[in-house]
Design a protein around this nucleic acid. Sequence first.
DNA 1: GAGTCCTGCAAACGCTTGTTTGAAACTTAC
DNA 2: GTAAGTTTCAAACAAGCGTTTGCAGGACTC
Lengths: 211, 211
Amino acid sequence: MAQKETVERILDAAEVLFAERGFAETSLRTITGAAGVNLAAVNYHFGSKKALIQAVFVRFLDPLVAEVERQLNLLQETKARLTVEDLLQVLTQSVYDIHGKGSNRATAFMRLLGLAYTQSQAHLRRFLGERYGEAFQHYVSHLKPALPGATAADLFWHTHFALGTAIFTMSNFDALRAMSENDTGSRTPVDFIVSRLTAFMAAGLHNAAHE
Amino acid sequence: MAQKETVERILDAAEVLFAERGFAETSLRTITGAAGVNLAAVNYHFGSKKALIQAVFVRFLDPLVAEVERQLNLLQETKARLTVEDLLQVLTQSVYDIHGKGSNRATAFMRLLGLAYTQSQAHLRRFLGERYGEAFQHYVSHLKPALPGATAADLFWHTHFALGTAIFTMSNFDALRAMSENDTGSRTPVDFIVSRLTAFMAAGLHNAAHE
DNA sequence: GAGTCCTGCAAACGCTTGTTTGAAACTTAC
DNA sequence: GTAAGTTTCAAACAAGCGTTTGCAGGACTC
């Protein structure tokens, strides 16, 4: 009991702090301080800071990947050929179903995903590739029939363009929202942003098939 | 003479190393070691590590912003209304004109731009906003007539979606290219990627006017 | 040629980092 | 109630960080 509580509290604090400041910029002392546990607890329960970073990702991604897979299979039973919009919808719907619609945990974690790409944590990228590479490939494989006429190279690049759009937006979500509030005077609802984002991605992806 | 050489060598080394590892992960000892100058030289010539980071951006962005402005004005004289494609073309053309077509300095710097967004360097974002905010707004102002029917909110979000696509792709350029080479077996030319990228961005941006 | 200014250098400063240690506190089982 | 096994804790560790210091060497003026 006491152990699980400590582990969970460390993960909670680490998830939030990593998302706010990045991995290298967040010290174990800051994390354990926020979690209200002893400094040595991280190395005792996780082994190292690197292992803690990976554990944060596993706790979030394992259920999400499973849910995406589930919804993908479900959808495939009712529809012979999935559209690009279907596939994007599965992603957002899976996040909504697990965390609720207005969850800031989801947007905070998206920032973590962005950091995983841009910060120099070679061990993390290797780890994520090994653990989730197959699931990612499986998801992308559904995109191919949805975009007839696209070559393999088209598919690869357009997928990563779309991925980049999403990750960048999510990882700078709060900053962008603040800027937009400054510009237009009103706060944009999350729904609006997400639907615009998926529309932008879909438009870009469809472009692959037309050239 | 000797001074300029030292300053320039520090900037060269810092630009490459920051792009490779990030700001916090690159120590002044690494930079001065690679540059072949004394450790104290950074604080002597720049004042602090933060000031060095800003100087790296200024050296790259000042000429680029000026060139974009120049090409924008030139284009406006021959054409009454600029298209989205025109505006994107001005950006890539400016980079090409300054650094040549196959420059890795340009792609490396794009990675720096991405880091500026995602790494926790509040001073950098503040600095970039103060120094280049006006030029950015001026550029975006040309986008409004190019996308009739788009509201102010549309314009803001779609601009940043496109920005995100570009920054993410550029900042992970080498990694993406290596992955694609692994997948398809052949190395994708830079031209191909850039033209696909701008096409993707244009398709997404046009989508703003149609909803 | 003395004086002034700029630059380069080795060494040290104080501080923070991730990790380890060894003993104390607690839980569990017989 | 004692023994074994977990978990917590304060303290210390070595290493790395950005920055500062004081001096040595060169370049320049007058």
